[in-house]
Design a protein around this nucleic acid. Structure first.
Lengths: 231, 231
DNA sequence: GACTCTCGGATCGTATACGATCCAACGAAA
DNA sequence: TTTCGTTGGATCGTATACGATCCGAGAGTC
């Protein structure tokens, strides 16, 4: 008689869920014994779960001190999104010749749902972010490269854990984002867009998130924004 | 009184070292109690080390059965190298405006050392691979994006662990590889090469490794090789 | 008042113990 | 001979116990 999940596995999932969902915010302390008590297991499986979370860069463990949820400062966040742009762009290039009409349809549905939220109440930010992430995942999963998908999932996890998008994503960005999504879907459907062009546009779409967040921090300086890596 | 490293940390490093160095080959079984005895610790820190290695995709843990060093079949290996090509290409694009003359010089030295090995005895394959990896690391580290560097290191680790390059890298590839390295350094030095072009060439350089390995498996079919993602 | 020292609680780190699970080898039945 | 059930050893999974370390609070000193 055994449960489907080992204790270490279920503990891992619980903690991860709470980090990605914001229950445990950035910088928050994770006390081993407290979590063990809370989840009704001994500290041993909790430690194992934490080692995995540490290896996934969601928490940092300090010896004889304990674990904290990782934080991202502005520069780190931008570098992470920049990598997301890179991976997503290439996944789209791969997806171009592989994606099924069904997947395109699914992505379109998600984007339409997203559009329905534009201008809506701000308290649905969590839901909007989930839809947005799912839209991208539908596309990049069609790229069908296991390592690309792994890395993208992991990068999105870190983005979610950082709470930056949830707390600082400017409302007006959603509308442009949805339009760019439509444009990407159009390029995918036509089949006549060059791979280079599709990759470039997808990359730019993600980089626009950086511009949006920066613009919100220092309004009026948008024209001085220098994005990395662009010619 | 404490050692500098916790037991779990030193165990982690030992096992990792052995996997990357080939002492533990792909598919090999890692028995908890045996390793604990070998390293003179209790099984608990060994389990923690294994959780990290599992999260890093170097081993796979099966419940109530144990751990094995991960293997990569041909398709997985190619997909991994393809991602390496992507990351490396972009890192080079970033490096273009950031790299120091010292770093370029260091890379040149490494490549010259590599050239000295071309045509040499095959039993220095391990050393050649280390030089080759270091050459690339010198350049992509200049890209100066923490997440890019992390991902590249991790991908190279998996490549090393797979032993594919060590066991199947055709001798003649080394010479062309070294020439391509020189060409990349030339492009970096001149400063007049467009970022897109530099990224494209770097990407292609890595993809050439796939062609070389495939060509070795099925000689005479080189012209039928279809590389993914290229226009 | 500022600084240092000491102490105690909180927390982590690891060993040990033991139950649970798997799996391969063996033997009995069809 | 093949199949299926049984059994024993190898191995993992987790709880418990206890020592080690850290860190903040308060006392003592300059």
């Amino acid at each position: 008689m055994s449960s489907l999940l080992s204790k270490h596995e279920s503990v891992y999932r619980s903690i991860r869920e709470r980090i990605l969902g914001g229950t445990y915010g950035p910088g928050e302390r994770l006390v081993l014994s407290a979590i063990a008590r809370d989840l009704d297991v001994s500290p041993v499986p909790v430690r194992e779960a934490m080692r995995r979370l540490e290896a996934e860069n969601l928490i940092t463990f300090e010896r004889n001190v304990g674990a904290r949820v990782n934080t991202l400062d502005d520069e780190e966040w931008e570098q992470l999104v920049e990598m997301l742009a890179l991976l997503d762009g290439y996944a789209m290039r791969r997806a171009r010749c592989r994606i099924t009409p069904a997947a395109i349809g699914e992505a379109q549905r998600l984007n339409d749902a997203l559009r329905a939220h534009a201008g809506g109440p701000a308290d649905q930010h969590g839901e909007v972010m989930a839809l947005h992430r799912l839209f991208h995942r539908t596309l990049y999963a069609s790229g069908d490269n296991r390592y690309l998908i792994e890395s993208l999932d992991s990068a999105w996890d870190r983005i979610d854990a950082s709470r930056v998008l949830v707390s600082r994503w400017p409302a007006h960005r959603l509308a442009s984002s949805v339009d760019e999504h439509d444009e990407l879907l159009r390029m995918l459907r036509s089949g006549e867009v060059a791979a280079d062009e599709l990759e470039r546009c997808t990359r730019q779409h993600s980089l626009n998130a950086i511009i949006a967040i920066r613009g919100r921090e220092t309004p009026g300086q948008l024209d001085r924004v220098v994005l990395p890596g662009l010619p």
